[in-house]
Design a protein around this nucleic acid. Structure first.
Length: 291
DNA sequence: AAGAATTACAACCGCAGCGTG
DNA sequence: ACACGCTGCGGTTGTAATTCT
């Protein structure tokens, strides 16, 4: 047996509120308050509405401190960042935006902001794909390949973060990925750029070192290089993978499989690191594999 | 100009959590 | 401990307005 309905739906008016109903509700609440009981309020106020409907109309539309009209760039940033960190907790997100309701924020996200983000990322992915093409071409011509990291870095969010606690606007910083750890940008809360793996030249002694960004050593025997970027129905995902195999003495990665993917709409960031699957050897003790 | 498609947003629904008796 | 009533929340739907063809 289900829960009893809060009111008799055959006896209450539903659908859009008339200006007269708005006036009645607004006048009643401003004069008497809600009395902590929305269920009883419509009867007292003389409204043929469900209490829940009255509450929603007041909270989302009639409250005097409600801010109507378009969202600002600053509000966009706040929503993006909080969604990034906490997901679809609309009431919490709305609490950071004075005058905005959870319903407002939710509608805005679903109808505009999500699409705006999608468009930005699509543009970025186009640029990345072009850079990838360059990288692929280089690999066929030479033993090593180098792609400037700037070409493989996509900006996905805005440059500043508004801190509602102390009313300051702070810059974002590009995040760095340590390939030895699964990485979630919300750990830092500062991400604005997603760095994609860059290919670096491997010196003749075969020693590779990390400098913040993941690097992919390429050997003469590199058999397969398969970067790919895609959009799917669940959001956006991008992946970049390199599969290399070889017996080259100068290459300490016998088999290397490396991938990076992220879902920008759910803002989950999954860094797939398979470097633990091999055991690199170094030519001298001072060489390291530090992130 | 008109119908179709899309967008924007208000409103509803059902569930979870909390307080109270 | 339990049932009940109420509120708050997030997902979904309905529809008016706008844009496209």
């Amino acid at each position: 047996m289900g829960r009893a309905p809060c009111c008799d739906k055959t006896k209450v008016k539903r659908g859009a509120w008339s200006p007269e109903e708005d006036t009645t509700l607004k006048n009643y609440v401003q004069k008497y308050g809600t009395g902590g009981n929305w269920i009883a309020l419509p009867h007292k106020a003389g409204l043929k509405r469900c209490g829940k409907s009255c509450r929603l109309r007041w909270l989302n539309y009639l409250r005097p401190d409600i801010k109507h009209g378009g969202f600002t760039e600053e509000e966009d940033n706040i929503i993006l960042n909080l969604y990034n960190n906490i997901g679809s907790k609309w009431s919490i997100i709305a609490s950071h935006l004075p005058g905005r309701t959870d319903n407002d924020v939710k509608n805005y996200w679903n109808t505009k902001l999500k699409k705006k983000l999608l468009a930005e990322v699509t543009t970025s992915l186009t640029a990345i794909t072009a850079a990838t093409s360059v990288a692929t071409t280089s690999i066929t011509n030479t033993s090593f390949c180098h792609v400037p990291s700037s070409a493989l870095t996509t900006k996905i969010e805005t440059n500043h973060f508004y801190n509602s606690v102390n009313n300051t606007t702070l810059p974002y910083y590009p995040m760095e990925v340590n390939p030895h750890h699964n990485f979630m940008p919300e750990m830092l809360g500062i991400s604005t750029q997603i760095p994609l793996p860059r290919l670096v030249e491997v010196p003749e002694n075969g020693i590779n070192s990390y400098s913040g960004f993941p690097t992919i050593p390429l050997s003469k025997e590199l058999s397969n290089f398969s970067p790919s970027f895609s959009l799917d129905n669940s959001g956006i995902s991008a992946s970049w993978s390199v599969n290399g195999g070889g017996e080259d003495n100068n290459t300490f990665l016998d088999e290397f499989d490396y991938g990076l993917s992220y879902d920008l709409l759910n803002i989950g960031f999954d860094f797939e690191d398979k470097t633990s699957e091999f055991n690199p050897s170094f030519t001298n003790s001072s060489d390291s594999f530090a992130g």
